[in-house]
Amino acid sequence: MTIRVLVADDEPLVRAGLRMVLRPAADIEVVAEAGNGADALDAVAASRPDVALIDIRMPGMDGLTMVRELKHRNLAVTAIMLTTFDLDDYLHTALAEGAVGFLLKDTPPRRLADAVRSAAAGELVLGPAAARRLVAAYTRQAPAAARAARDRLAKLTAREGAVAAEIARGRSNAQIARALGIAETSVKAHVSRILTKLALDNRVQIALLVRDAET
């Protein structure tokens, strides 16, 4: 299966270089390119790539804004951020906005092709330095995040807490109903109340909050 790639960068030479780097990979095809985020969004909608290589700094709409817009417009493409600026703010913002990768532009050609394959498979793709910094930041923040998560979960009743714990285990409403010995309609009602009480949008966020609390 060929992985379809879009390249978004304001420098024509960089776009040409990325095409050249990826051309030898028989399973990867660059299907579109753009010089700014707005044009890249149109190209994503038109060409339906699997993976987008996106420069963080572009005129008009930058890469971080573009990733945010991909999510808002429900455009199903996996984003890898490319940059010459190895900054923590860029890294954290990119991942928070939904990117699955953060690489420097001097990434070796073979590593770039492997990164595209990994991203297409749903894996997180980070350069070595970015990975080290992310782990260090998580280690520093984990105790505080766990306390904050436990404080939020304390708003739930015992039954709601049990439902939240089952959601974190990846169980469906029917499975939760069987595990807790309650009706599936009751599970749905509990989930709705959990989302409202915790100001969350979906079950994934419930699961992540529970896991933070268990850190």
Rank of each mutant, 00 (worst) to 15 (best):
residue 60 G to D: 07
residue 112 L to I: 03
residue 120 A to H: 02
residue 85 F to P: 08
residue 78 T to F: 06
residue 128 P to V: 03
residue 108 P to N: 05
residue 68 R to H: 08
residue 99 A to L: 04
residue 88 D to M: 10
residue 69 E to H: 15
residue 115 A to Q: 08
residue 41 L to I: 15
residue 113 A to R: 10
residue 64 L to A: 05
residue 77 V to G: 09
residue 116 V to C: 05
residue 62 D to E: 04
residue 50 D to G: 12
residue 122 G to A: 08
residue 50 D to C: 06
residue 124 L to M: 15
residue 60 G to C: 08
residue 81 M to R: 03
residue 127 G to V: 00
residue 99 A to M: 03
residue 125 V to K: 01
residue 62 D to Q: 11
residue 98 G to S: 04
residue 83 T to A: 09
residue 85 F to G: 00
residue 48 R to K: 13
residue 89 D to A: 13
residue 112 L to S: 01
residue 53 L to N: 02
residue 124 L to G: 07
residue 97 E to T: 06
residue 53 L to G: 02
residue 124 L to D: 04
residue 91 L to H: 07
residue 40 A to F: 05
residue 63 G to V: 12
residue 88 D to L: 08
residue 107 T to W: 04
residue 115 A to K: 10
residue 60 G to Y: 04
residue 48 R to T: 11
residue 82 L to F: 12
residue 97 E to F: 13
residue 63 G to N: 07
residue 51 V to E: 02
residue 65 T to S: 14
residue 106 D to C: 13
residue 125 V to H: 02
residue 68 R to E: 14
residue 72 H to C: 05
residue 71 K to V: 13
residue 71 K to T: 09
residue 75 L to D: 09
residue 116 V to T: 04
residue 120 A to D: 01
residue 115 A to E: 04
residue 81 M to P: 09
residue 65 T to W: 05
residue 68 R to G: 14
residue 68 R to W: 06
residue 59 P to M: 00
residue 39 D to M: 05
residue 87 L to G: 11
residue 115 A to T: 06
residue 117 R to A: 10
residue 62 D to P: 00
residue 116 V to N: 03
residue 50 D to P: 13
residue 71 K to F: 09
